[in-house]
């Protein structure tokens, strides 16, 4: 995706929890804070619900980066969902790194419902980081294989 000025506009998918980060992102809007429009937010009941494969599926579908964000430790609506999620991310990052997938393109964060400004910063920083890295064609090329062969993934 290229804008008129020919700068690379990264596509970013954000997986956020309903109770903290989604409300935080909402606050960013109601506070009239301006931030990059590259992010597409997907709302989940809890960070514990975010399956690791969602992240890979986003990359396969053309995302250049992924943001995963939820409640701060001890703030989880379900008490321990984010603790379980944190462990999963530690393991997942380790596996991705071993497999040679670019872990810099996955940004984990804690954004509470009161941190509208932090959400704006998070998105802006991620966008500028990914702009420097460029599009994630490495992974997308692998995903495109079937389209080139004339198959379509979903029936």
């Amino acid at each position: 995706m290229m804008s008129d000025s020919n700068t690379f506009e990264p596509k970013i998918v954000a997986f956020v929890c309903n109770w903290c980060t989604y409300a935080g992102a909402d606050l960013t809007g109601t506070s009239r804070l301006k931030y990059a429009t590259n992010v597409k937010i997907v709302r989940f009941p809890c960070t514990g619900r975010i399956d690791f494969l969602f992240l890979l599926k986003s990359f396969a579908q053309g995302a250049d980066a992924v943001i995963v964000s939820g409640c701060h430790p001890n703030d989880c609506h379900y008490t321990s969902g984010n603790f379980h999620a944190r462990r999963r991310w530690i393991a997942f990052r380790a596996i991705l790194d071993l497999m040679g997938i670019d872990v810099r393109r996955i940004q984990f964060s804690w954004v509470s419902a009161a941190e509208g400004a932090k959400w704006a910063d998070l998105v802006n920083n991620t966008v500028s980081d990914i702009r420097a890295l460029g599009p994630y064609t490495e992974y997308q090329k692998v995903a495109e294989y079937l389209e080139k062969e004339g198959f379509d993934g979903e029936a």
Binding site: P73, S80, F83, H84, R86, W89, Q107, F108, S109, W110
Partner: peptide, 14 residues
């Protein structure tokens, strides 16, 4: 992955 500790590593979370 079915348990957790309060002090699990967190440096990579911004």
């Amino acid at each position: 992955l079915s348990s957790w500790r309060l002090d699990d590593r967190e440096q990579f979370i911004r």
